[in-house]
Design a protein around this nucleic acid. Structure first.
Length: 428
RNA sequence: GCGAGCGUAGCCAAGUGGUUAAGGCAGUGGAUUGUGGUUCCGCCAUUCGUGGGUUCGAGUCCCAUCGUUCGCCCCA
């Protein structure tokens, strides 16, 4: 019978890889905690209407990438394709904005989009993201970006490029859209097919077309930055000067536009040269209209999301994380000894040591071979003789030193054992 | 959704239509019946993602299907 395999676009994260995920989560948790961001967990499925209204019905994500289905109560559900809509729904539903002040929230978890899988792009993928709700200040944009770069830099990524743009507010964009259409229409026949199609549907998206011919035409196109209102422009300049004050280098990219409808003003992407076509590791921006769009009080907000799979790919290129260290490898043979070894292993674990118990029942020689391969600091050995005398042999694997210890004394020696273990770690 | 490449063991692979499917790593048994790292010997794919077809003969050619990789699209 054929074995059942993981679905297309889904994958298992095996123990050898999970260490990287845990490292990312630990670093993010620490940095976000220090900036007083609080974790929030929202459901992985939501009413379909939430994403249709939040992300925009005309977007590709909503139009052709959502996992949407009817449940047994005939409700239309969708597996979340991104994190922001759910967090905003929760923010409104629980009145998190009514306490005044700014809500700094972060989340992590799986997202779902029905796309053709590629390296760094799965159908179930994972994001870690933040949402800052309630501040219109440019400082909120700069703080959010600073925290993202801080997390990535702490993880060891030094070569990411920060692309920055402002797409202004709705009326800025209306004016720009008209100017862009005026400019592009005479060139319509020379644009690539996708861009021709977008000229009426979503002309801003033409700006980030990868087609060379289209890019050439765009060289002379009007820039969004020339169509910002004085207020939007001042706001964007403030974001830039704050980033400079934070010593965060960035590249102005007037052609950076986002595929989700809710963005306003600041948009940004952090990209790597080492990921192929899926280069964006972290992206986000301001979304001042979304809370109101979803039925809440008008609330300015900014956020971003990191693609975990892409980040982990980069980390694996960068460094190899060691296997977790084992303090003691428990070798035992013979029925009473094996029982005592189990009890002793539990006692040591409760005292804080990491103990691997060999349950193979194979010859001592084999068990020592495995002990060696486990890179444990020391072996604890129990055979018939030790079982009878209630002792245990302690053998340090680096020097080969071996001494007999009464089982009852092992815990009272734990400080000395810990000292010896620590000195070994320092040498290694 | 579109285009192209690739699927041989847990991993890396050789194999270019001719009969027993190299090799390495890992694993495992023994030399070594209570003491590791080296070494030596043995075992480890009735079968090449799956299903059809062509052929006297298919891992090798053809078709379909599934998976994967790269690009487009999209996006984190």
């Amino acid at each position: 019978m054929a074995a059942i395999q993981a679905l297309r676009g889904t994958r298992d994260i095996l123990p050898a890889e999970i260490r990287y995920w845990q490292q990312v989560e630990a670093v993010a948790r620490d940095i976000l905690g220090k900036a007083t961001y609080q974790e929030i967990r929202t459901p992985t499925f939501e009413p379909t209407a939430l994403f249709e209204r939040g992300i925009g019905e005309a977007t590709d994500v909503v139009g052709k990438e959502m996992y949407t289905f009817k449940d047994r109560g005939d409700r239309s559900l969708t597996l979340r394709p991104e994190g922001t809509a759910g967090v905003v729904r929760s923010f409104i539903e629980h009145g998190l904005g009514t306490q005044g002040g700014v809500q700094r929230l972060w989340y992590c978890g799986p997202m779902f989009r029905y796309e053709r899988p590629q390296a760094g792009r799965q159908r179930q993928f994972h994001q870690i993201g933040v949402e800052v709700l309630g501040s219109p200040s440019a400082r909120a944009d700069a703080e959010a970006i600073a925290i993202a770069t801080d997390i990535l830099k702490t993880l060891g990524l030094k070569t990411l490029e920060l692309n920055l743009n402002s797409i202004g507010d709705a009326s800025d964009r209306d004016r720009f859209r008209a100017a862009l259409i005026d400019y592009l229409t005479p060139f319509k026949d020379k644009l690539d097919a996708d861009s021709q199609d977008r000229l009426t549907r979503n002309p801003l998206r033409i700006l980030d077309s990868k087609d060379e011919g289209t890019q050439k035409i765009l060289d002379q196109a009007p820039s969004i930055l020339d169509h910002l209102s004085p207020e939007s422009q001042a706001r964007f300049e403030q974001v830039q000067s704050l980033l400079s004050a934070l010593n965060i280098p960035y590249t102005l990219n007037p052609r950076l536009v986002r595929g989700l409808d809710y963005y306003t003003h600041t948009v940004f992407e952090l990209q790597s040269q080492d990921l192929g076509a899926q280069a964006t590791v972290c992206a986000g921006g301001r979304y001042d209209g979304l809370v109101q769009e979803l039925g809440g009080a008008a609330t300015p907000a900014v956020g971003w999301a990191i693609g975990m799979e892409r980040l982990v790919i980069l980390l694996q290129q960068l460094q190899s994380l060691p296997e977790p260290a084992i303090d003691f490898y428990m070798v035992s043979k013979g029925e009473p000894a094996e029982a005592q070894a189990l009890v002793l292993a539990q006692t040591l674990r409760q005292a804080g040591f990491t103990v691997e118990l060999d349950m193979s029942g194979s010859a001592f020689g084999k068990q020592f071979k495995r002990a060696d391969r486990s890179h444990a600091a020391a072996c604890l050995i129990l055979g018939d003789t030790e079982a009878e005398t209630q002792t245990v042999q302690l053998k340090w694997l680096d020097t080969g030193d071996q001494t007999a210890i009464a089982q009852a004394d092992l815990l009272t020696m734990s400080d000395a054992l810990q000292t010896r273990l620590n000195s070994r770690t320092r040498e290694a």
